[in-house]
Amino acid sequence: MEVRTIKVFTTVDNINLHTQVVDMSMTYGQQFGPTYLDGADVTKIKPHNSHEGKTFYVLPNDDTLRVEAFEYYHTTDPSFLGRYMSALNHTKKWKYPQVNGLTSIKWADNNCYLATALLTLQQIELKFNPPALQDAYYRARAGEAANFCALILAYCNKTVGELGDVRETMSYLFQHANLDSCKRVLNVVCKTCGQQQTTLKGVEAVMYMGTLSYEQFKKGVQIPCTCGKQATKYLVQQESPFVMMSAPPAQYELKHGTFTCASEYTGNYQCGHYKHITSKETLYCIDGALLTKSSEYKGPITDVFYKENSYTTTIK
């Protein structure tokens, strides 16, 4: 009895394709271990004539594949690729409408935090270190965002349907971005203890939790000093293409032309909904596939993004 075979390709990165001759009487799992086709788990399936010449994702289970996976995804987590594939199996079914010149995501599976993050990423200057993220990001900007969303979920250790947080998501993504040249110098002034300067680099240099107003941050924000008295913390120097200011959701007025974009969060910790506000020729609110415009805006804002380049204080 002759062994019926077909020729397929296996890959971990969709760049390096490895030619395989597979036995049609055995499952993919018996031949390769966990195997995925377009995100779908085909591990328990036997090869079919229609699979001839198709590319299958496999887990990096030998040295060659491990090197290829690390170079593309910059992670050695053995569960990463499987999590990416199972997320992709959902995100490829989502709709990605162009809204006001940006790629958004039609609401499904509690994905409003991903839509808000995706919209924000198209408006701030950011370059990702893992080629996987950078490639998928370019495709997302062009309207094909399924891979990018699935990668975000995998890097953030999230599953489809789980509630997510924009600030946490951005923080994970910033860790995989090139923020080497970003720098922030802060000064804390206390009447009792004097003053202390701190220099922050990388992710810490672009994120701040405690106030939404970048102007206020430049002037000074009140913080408790270690001595128990009130101290003032203010920005001395900022070198970065953008800054992200966050605070627990509270009524906040966004003035046209003073910011790049913002995240609105309605609801409580267990259950809520994100919308995205962007400042173009007027203010726009993007909620999944829905767009509304207004000249002014007041609502429960939790993150505001500002364009920056270089700032030095005039406070002496």
Score class of each variant (00 low, 15 high):
residue 125 E to V: 04
residue 199 T to G: 06
residue 19 T to V: 12
residue 244 M to C: 08
residue 241 P to N: 07
residue 67 V to S: 14
residue 208 Y to E: 03
residue 216 Q to W: 03
residue 163 L to V: 15
residue 104 S to W: 00
residue 215 E to C: 07
residue 85 M to S: 05
residue 192 T to R: 12
residue 1 M to S: 04
residue 95 K to H: 11
residue 113 Y to L: 00
residue 22 V to F: 02
residue 5 T to P: 12
residue 228 G to I: 01
residue 160 V to G: 05
residue 268 N to V: 15
residue 295 S to N: 13
residue 292 T to Y: 10
residue 90 H to D: 08
residue 250 A to Q: 12
residue 145 A to N: 03
residue 96 Y to E: 01
residue 176 H to E: 06
residue 71 E to C: 11
residue 129 N to D: 09
residue 276 H to I: 01
residue 27 T to G: 07
residue 109 D to M: 11
residue 140 A to C: 07
residue 209 M to Y: 10
residue 169 T to F: 03
residue 239 E to D: 11
residue 289 A to G: 10
residue 256 H to F: 11
residue 73 Y to P: 00
residue 37 L to C: 12
residue 231 A to S: 07
residue 38 D to Q: 10
residue 246 S to F: 05
residue 250 A to N: 13
residue 3 V to F: 13
residue 140 A to M: 11
residue 43 T to P: 00
residue 60 P to I: 07
residue 18 H to Y: 06
residue 148 F to G: 00
residue 97 P to N: 11
residue 109 D to T: 03
residue 26 M to I: 14
residue 19 T to S: 13
residue 258 T to R: 11
residue 293 K to F: 05
residue 100 N to V: 10
residue 257 G to F: 01
residue 72 Y to S: 11
residue 51 H to I: 00
residue 51 H to W: 02
residue 227 C to M: 04
residue 34 P to Y: 10
residue 123 Q to M: 03
residue 213 S to M: 05
residue 159 T to I: 07
residue 42 V to L: 12
residue 165 D to W: 09
residue 304 V to Y: 03
residue 132 A to I: 01
residue 140 A to I: 09
residue 247 A to H: 06
residue 216 Q to K: 09
residue 122 Q to D: 01
residue 175 Q to M: 12
residue 310 S to C: 11
residue 14 N to R: 14
residue 14 N to A: 10
residue 276 H to N: 06
residue 13 D to L: 03
residue 298 K to M: 10
residue 288 G to A: 05
residue 306 Y to G: 06
residue 80 F to G: 00
residue 56 F to Q: 00
residue 160 V to F: 00
residue 306 Y to R: 05
residue 155 Y to C: 02
residue 109 D to S: 10
residue 235 L to R: 04
residue 124 I to E: 03
residue 38 D to K: 10
residue 166 V to T: 08
residue 71 E to L: 13
residue 289 A to Q: 13
residue 40 A to D: 14
residue 258 T to L: 07
residue 289 A to D: 07
residue 312 T to C: 10
residue 34 P to Q: 04
residue 200 L to Q: 14
residue 171 S to F: 13
residue 261 C to D: 04
residue 170 M to R: 00
residue 186 L to H: 09
residue 232 T to M: 11
residue 17 L to V: 10
residue 53 G to Y: 12
residue 154 A to Y: 00
residue 135 D to F: 08
residue 63 D to C: 10
residue 304 V to R: 04
residue 244 M to T: 06
residue 263 S to P: 03
residue 16 N to S: 13
residue 206 V to Q: 06
residue 98 Q to N: 09
residue 299 G to R: 07
residue 37 L to R: 11
residue 138 Y to G: 15
residue 188 V to S: 06
residue 218 K to W: 06
residue 209 M to V: 11
residue 271 C to S: 04
residue 157 N to G: 13
residue 285 C to H: 09
residue 118 L to N: 02
residue 21 V to K: 12
residue 33 G to Y: 01
residue 265 Y to K: 15
residue 77 D to Q: 03
residue 311 Y to D: 08
residue 197 Q to G: 08
residue 89 N to V: 12
residue 73 Y to S: 00
residue 258 T to C: 13
residue 212 L to E: 06
residue 241 P to D: 13
residue 314 T to S: 14
residue 266 T to D: 12
residue 269 Y to W: 08
residue 274 Y to R: 04
residue 78 P to K: 03
residue 121 L to F: 12
residue 181 S to E: 13
residue 165 D to H: 14
residue 281 E to T: 03
residue 91 T to Y: 04
residue 243 V to W: 03
residue 147 N to S: 12
residue 166 V to K: 01
residue 34 P to W: 09
residue 109 D to K: 15
residue 196 Q to P: 03
residue 117 A to K: 00
residue 106 K to H: 15
residue 61 N to D: 09
residue 203 V to H: 10
residue 234 Y to P: 04
residue 267 G to V: 15
residue 267 G to T: 14
residue 199 T to I: 12
residue 103 T to W: 13
residue 257 G to I: 03
residue 310 S to D: 14
residue 92 K to T: 07
residue 196 Q to K: 14
residue 90 H to F: 14
residue 139 R to S: 13
residue 282 T to L: 12
residue 263 S to Q: 00
residue 261 C to E: 07
residue 49 N to E: 09
residue 227 C to T: 02
residue 180 D to Y: 07
residue 266 T to R: 15
residue 155 Y to G: 03
residue 264 E to T: 09
residue 152 I to C: 07
residue 100 N to M: 12
residue 219 K to R: 11
residue 254 L to F: 05
residue 164 G to P: 02
residue 272 G to F: 07
residue 146 A to V: 00
residue 168 E to N: 02
residue 198 T to Q: 14
residue 106 K to T: 13
residue 58 V to N: 05
residue 305 F to V: 11
residue 51 H to D: 12
residue 41 D to Y: 03
residue 129 N to I: 08
residue 295 S to L: 13
residue 161 G to D: 05
residue 99 V to M: 10
residue 9 F to P: 00
residue 271 C to E: 15
residue 65 L to Y: 09
residue 86 S to Y: 10
residue 25 S to E: 10
residue 268 N to C: 07
residue 45 I to C: 09
residue 157 N to V: 00
residue 166 V to L: 11
residue 115 A to E: 00
residue 90 H to W: 11
residue 295 S to A: 12
residue 212 L to G: 08
residue 252 Y to F: 14
residue 176 H to Q: 10
residue 151 L to H: 05
residue 213 S to V: 14
residue 290 L to K: 15
residue 178 N to F: 03
residue 315 I to C: 12
residue 132 A to V: 00
residue 183 K to W: 09
residue 166 V to F: 15
residue 82 G to W: 10
residue 226 T to V: 15
residue 216 Q to T: 10
residue 102 L to A: 05
residue 234 Y to D: 02
residue 36 Y to G: 01
residue 261 C to R: 01
residue 50 S to P: 08
residue 306 Y to N: 05
residue 114 L to T: 02
residue 162 E to C: 06
residue 29 G to R: 01
residue 298 K to W: 09
residue 155 Y to M: 00
residue 155 Y to P: 01
residue 92 K to S: 09
residue 259 F to E: 06
residue 100 N to R: 13
residue 20 Q to F: 09
residue 184 R to S: 13
residue 197 Q to H: 12
residue 304 V to E: 07
residue 69 A to T: 14
residue 284 Y to M: 10
residue 181 S to R: 12
residue 212 L to V: 14
residue 299 G to F: 03
residue 212 L to I: 08
residue 222 Q to G: 14
residue 50 S to L: 10
residue 92 K to I: 11
residue 250 A to M: 12
residue 259 F to N: 05
residue 172 Y to M: 08
residue 252 Y to I: 11
residue 279 S to L: 03
residue 207 M to V: 10
residue 164 G to A: 11
residue 208 Y to C: 11
residue 198 T to L: 12
residue 285 C to V: 14
residue 302 T to P: 05
residue 75 T to S: 13
residue 60 P to L: 06
residue 232 T to F: 09
residue 47 P to W: 02
residue 241 P to F: 03
residue 186 L to G: 02
residue 107 W to Y: 15
residue 39 G to H: 09
residue 181 S to T: 14
residue 58 V to L: 11
residue 262 A to L: 04
residue 262 A to M: 03
residue 198 T to N: 09
residue 110 N to I: 00
residue 230 Q to C: 06
residue 252 Y to W: 09
residue 165 D to C: 13
residue 148 F to Y: 01
residue 265 Y to T: 06
residue 128 F to Y: 07
residue 278 T to F: 10
residue 269 Y to A: 15
residue 225 C to V: 02
residue 178 N to I: 04
residue 274 Y to Q: 05
residue 46 K to W: 15
residue 52 E to T: 13
residue 188 V to W: 15
residue 237 Q to H: 12
residue 33 G to S: 00
residue 109 D to V: 04
residue 156 C to W: 01
residue 34 P to H: 10
residue 195 Q to K: 12
residue 149 C to V: 14
residue 8 V to C: 09
residue 194 G to R: 03
residue 233 K to V: 12
residue 134 Q to R: 11
residue 113 Y to P: 02
residue 133 L to R: 00
residue 269 Y to M: 12
residue 246 S to G: 02
residue 299 G to S: 08
residue 125 E to M: 09
residue 11 T to M: 03
residue 12 V to S: 12
residue 229 K to W: 03
residue 145 A to I: 03
residue 113 Y to R: 00
residue 237 Q to W: 14
residue 158 K to F: 05
residue 44 K to E: 15
residue 22 V to C: 11
residue 176 H to S: 02
residue 287 D to F: 00
residue 111 N to T: 03
residue 57 Y to H: 15
residue 204 E to K: 14
residue 264 E to N: 06
residue 282 T to Y: 12
residue 289 A to S: 15
residue 145 A to G: 07
residue 272 G to K: 09
residue 48 H to M: 10
residue 188 V to K: 15
residue 230 Q to Y: 15
residue 59 L to M: 13
residue 38 D to H: 10
residue 199 T to S: 09
residue 151 L to A: 03
residue 11 T to K: 02
residue 62 D to F: 03
residue 155 Y to L: 01
residue 187 N to Q: 10
residue 223 I to E: 13
residue 215 E to F: 01
residue 22 V to G: 05
residue 13 D to R: 03
residue 41 D to V: 14
residue 113 Y to E: 05
residue 314 T to W: 12
residue 13 D to V: 00
residue 197 Q to K: 09
residue 6 I to M: 15
residue 311 Y to A: 08
residue 87 A to F: 02
residue 131 P to T: 02
residue 36 Y to L: 01
residue 11 T to L: 04
residue 191 K to I: 13
residue 2 E to N: 10
residue 313 T to R: 08
residue 263 S to M: 06
residue 161 G to Y: 03
residue 112 C to H: 08
residue 89 N to A: 09
residue 70 F to T: 04
residue 55 T to D: 01
residue 130 P to T: 13
residue 192 T to S: 12
residue 47 P to D: 00
residue 118 L to W: 01
residue 185 V to N: 04
residue 243 V to H: 04
residue 91 T to S: 02
residue 85 M to I: 15
residue 79 S to M: 12
residue 266 T to L: 08
residue 51 H to R: 00
residue 52 E to F: 10
residue 226 T to W: 07
residue 200 L to G: 05
residue 151 L to F: 00
residue 284 Y to L: 08
residue 246 S to W: 02
residue 281 E to D: 15
residue 38 D to W: 11
residue 46 K to N: 10
residue 155 Y to R: 03
residue 283 L to R: 05
